[in-house]
């Protein structure tokens, strides 16, 4: 299948990084960037390909994280099974929120608003109900065995999140090449026209929402295993909703590699800010907000768009250079 080779090559190159003995700090940076890349890819399925801009994907990140943590802590479920259950729960949350919103015909601003509201309701609920640890949060018990989805070193974590990101890249690539993907893009470009051509708009959007939510929930579930802690602010807070949409928008919305590229840029910017002024509260998000405005203003198709434009210019210049000379006289 077209494009799969590139994905596998990129994955293999990234997988080789720990073999060069990089420091734990670098590895930690890469893991957090890949978590955002995964969440961003989830957002990209619905927002990038489907054109439905959610401002509340924290709802799925948090659900994946909490379900996984609660199953392990309160019911003694194996961490891997809990992780899978978290993904399932995230998909279910996507089906419920998507079903309600799309059936009511919410789109554009309204959809952004309702997703934001759902995430906020979940955040408030999680900060008061006992099962989520209320205001204190949940600490997953330290159990450094591979069976418990916990590792002594950061390297296995890195490979696992890389594998998850690779799977998400392959899923998005498959969507791009599928009939479903074509429907999805049709809905994004013109919902009425798509409907007139017989596309089941609600079903297509709902499908995208479920896939999107499941991918973001996987990011949440991994987050819990890596940091062994979750609270309402992390799980359902606005930071993850924003980073999940920022990554694809910076990298290139509606492209396979956009979220991965964007996540790396977002994290580099965040770290650079910390280096310059120390760990001040709000600084990283302040920069993200500014970058979001700048990207929309200057490069609305993100890095991928800029690269595509540059490539098109170079490709165009080569063949044009020769035939232009003899015909130049006719134009004058």
């Amino acid at each position: 299948m077209k494009g799969v080779g590139t994905i596998l090559v990129v994955a293999a190159l990234l997988a080789a990084v720990p073999l060069f003995g990089v420091s734990n700090v670098t590895l930690n940076f890469l893991v957090t960037a890949l978590i955002i890349a995964l969440a961003g890819q989830g957002w990209n399925v619905l927002g990038g390909y489907g054109g439905q801009y959610s401002f509340g994907h924290a709802a799925f990140f948090g659900t994946g994280a909490y379900v996984s943590a609660i199953l392990q802590l309160r019911y003694g479920v194996n961490a891997w099974i809990a992780f899978a259950a978290g993904i399932g729960a995230g998909a279910l949350a996507g089906a419920i929120i998507g079903g309600l919103s799309f059936r009511s015909g919410l789109r554009g601003s309204y959809f952004a608003l309702v997703t934001l509201a759902f995430a906020e309701v979940l955040r408030i609920l999680a900060s008061v109900t006992p099962i989520t640890g209320a205001g204190v949060g949940l600490l997953v018990k330290l159990d450094l065995r591979p069976e418990a989805f916990q590792f002594q070193s950061r390297v296995p974590f890195y490979w696992i999140i890389l594998a998850l990101v690779t799977v998400s890249l392959l899923i998005v690539r498959a969507i791009e090449n599928s009939r479903f993907g074509a429907y999805l893009v049709a809905v994004r470009e013109n919902e009425e026209a798509a409907k007139a051509l017989g596309v089941n708009v609600i079903a297509v959007k709902l499908g995208a929402m479920v896939i999107s939510a499941a991918i973001v929930a996987a990011a949440g579930g991994f987050y819990v295993q890596y940091f062994l802690f979750i609270d309402a602010g992390i799980a359902y807070g606005p930071w993850i909703s924003i980073e999940a949409l920022l990554a694809p928008i910076i990298g290139g919305v509606g492209t396979v590699f956009g979220p991965l590229l964007g996540a790396l840029v977002v994290k580099v910017l965040g770290e650079a800010a910390k280096l310059v002024t120390g760990d001040a509260p709000g600084l990283d998000l302040m920069i993200y907000g500014g970058v979001l405005v700048l990207v929309i203003a200057l490069a609305p198709r993100g890095i991928a768009g800029v690269v595509a434009d540059l490539r098109a210019r170079i490709v165009r210049r080569k063949p044009e250079a020769k035939p232009e000379q003899p015909t130049a006289g006719h134009h004058v």
Partner: peptide
């Protein structure tokens, strides 16, 4: 997206 970006920018600039 621009108004969202502005919101995040302003709010966190105030926090900073």
């Amino acid at each position: 997206l621009v108004t969202l970006g502005l919101a995040v920018l302003i709010e966190n600039a105030l926090l900073y």
